[in-house]
């Protein structure tokens, strides 16, 4: 096992363990904090894959922005100590069977498939190439994402508004 592998498994373990805490914890603040480690672990894996730009954006946007916003939201809510969130589980057996089957299929797909591979190269900084691709080949996707975000904003505002009876 090379050093690379060890680092990968380390980050993967961080991601999975903290992700497990996010969904099982009864306290919403604990969940939010373990989400921090999930995002961090994912960012680490991005770095290992040579995707430096995405890793930085992951930390800046998710850890720096969204997570802090989430924590603020929790802290500004009344009765923070006894926020009643239901993390109970129902239909454990069918759920476990379905998830188990899906995971088995995905695992076997991962192991048995001949993936398309590329010869490994020394990682280079990707920011310039990404920027160029986004405004040339993928300009349509980029612009459409802008509209998607606009719709998401309008939708969020629409949901959040209280309706007067």
């Amino acid at each position: 096992m090379s050093l690379y592998d060890i680092i990968f498994y380390l980050f993967a373990a961080i991601t999975i363990l903290s992700g497990f805490i996010v969904v099982t914890s009864k306290n919403i603040v604990y969940s939010a904090f373990s989400l921090l480690f999930t995002f961090f672990g994912v960012a680490g894996i991005y770095v290992l894959l040579g995707a430096d730009f995405i890793a930085i954006v992951q930390i800046l946007v998710y850890v720096g922005g969204i997570l802090i916003l989430l924590l603020f939201g929790v802290m500004l809510t009344n009765k923070i100590t006894n926020v009643d969130i239901r993390t109970g589980t129902i239909h454990v057996l069918p759920g476990a069977v379905a998830v188990g089957v899906l995971m088995g299929l995905l695992l076997s797909a991962m192991v048995w498939t001949e993936w398309k591979t590329q010869p490994s190269e020394t990682p280079v900084t990707t920011t310039v190439t990404l920027g160029r691709l986004l405004i040339t080949d993928y300009i349509l996707i980029f612009e459409l994402l802008g509209i998607l975000l606009l719709i998401a904003l309008i939708g969020a505002a629409s949901i959040a508004r209280r309706e007067q009876e």
Partner: peptide, 11 residues
């Protein structure tokens, strides 16, 4: 693009 447009419709 397929995924993105499906998401736009769904959202």
């Amino acid at each position: 693009l397929i995924y993105l447009s499906v998401e736009l419709l769904s959202l």
